[in-house]
Amino acid sequence: MAAIETLVPPAKVAAAGAGSPVTVEARDVNVYYGEKQALKQVDLDVRRHEVTALIGPSGCGKSTFLRCINRMNDVIEGCRVTGRISLDGEDIYDSDLDVVALRARVGMVFQKPNPFPKSVYDNVAYGPRIHGMAANRGELDEIVANSLERAGLLKEVRDRLNDPGTGLSGGQQQRLCIARAIAVNPEVILMDEPCSALDPIATARIEELIDEIRANYTIVIVTHSMQQAARVSQRTAFFHLGELVEAGDTPEIFTSPRDRRTHGYITGRFG
């Protein structure tokens, strides 16, 4: 494999203001696993080029909501979603909508790193390949190099591009999964507790990364760490028992929550 040299530094874009347009709009979203209702009447706006953090106690439906946004719940048997979620004004549960195209526009990073049992290169190149994003090997190399660089992994794996992706350390694997997600250039990236298996240094790297790439993407992140939510997000949504209790600008949620339950959770009194 040709050594990858072409690097493009990530474009720096000024942080979007509170007035930036809504990318994902969820209205009256209910989710049922069989008979059991996991989400109740959720309304939430996710704004462009912002990081929205979803917080809440375990089992409150954060992952469930996240998976609604790229219709990953379709894969789960017995899962039913009602209500309306739109991406740039387009209803993503419309029967005419192509799910594959949606998932190319809304990427996902999972809680547990799940690289393909393929080489590091092929892990990142897989998405661009199936979506016909590169006309030749040179272009593909370019995409792979850029994605790895933006995920902060290129330096570490430059000599190991042909080694199995599953042979990397946990933190490296998670960054590989991030590189794999951004290689497709989605508009929205969903991250389900991306740092739950990582040490503080790797976590810091990923937080840095999120802050950098948010200039080009819209990010929704599930996290159990209040500090992390406070550090990386512009907006925070607090879920409790399948309900969206409150959502707002992150500093506000953390300094003056309107709901008693939010207050209790962020101060560590329950959860």
């Binding site: 894969v75 594959v100 195209a101 990427g107 990073v109 999972f110 799940n114 199936i130």
Partner: peptide, 21 residues
Amino acid sequence: PPSIREAAYGVGASSLQVVTH
């Protein structure tokens, strides 16, 4: 493992691609 399927679906592979790739 289901995580492999999820990973492939997550980057926008079709069901057929998930199965064959």
